[in-house]
Amino acid sequence: MTFDKDVKYLESHEWARKDGDVIVCGISDYAQDSLGDIVFVELPEVGQSLKKGEAFGVVESVKAASDVYMPVSGEIVEINGVLEETPETVNEDPFGDGWLIKIKASDPAEYDGLMSADDYKTYTEGLEE
């Protein structure tokens, strides 16, 4: 299980990473492993503005559909079009090519408040019990 140190995490298992002036968001390795084979990813329209904690899409595995939530408030500036044809990229490279959306954050302070890799790892260990 990988807990990428260069990103921050949400309790709902998304990760967020600062990349220049946008925030890239995906789901964690822990999340993709728990979900199993991902067969469909539904992403929002570019240009849509959503608040932190709002569902921006759905990740569907063989057995279940899971909402994915905004790590910060802002405007969707790009979606990962590769996932339409190859949703399994989320399983294969959750922190890299399997990213979901890029957000132009409206409040930079929200990013700073997200969980560190160490805290997220401890948090997931608590979920195993």
């Binding site: 199993g36 084979d37 067969v39 063989v62 057995k63 399994e88 399983n91």
Partner: peptide, 9 residues
């Protein structure tokens, strides 16, 4: 329900 390799495999 599935093993480590996943249901699709």
């Amino acid at each position: 329900i599935q093993y480590a390799g996943g249901a699709l495999q």
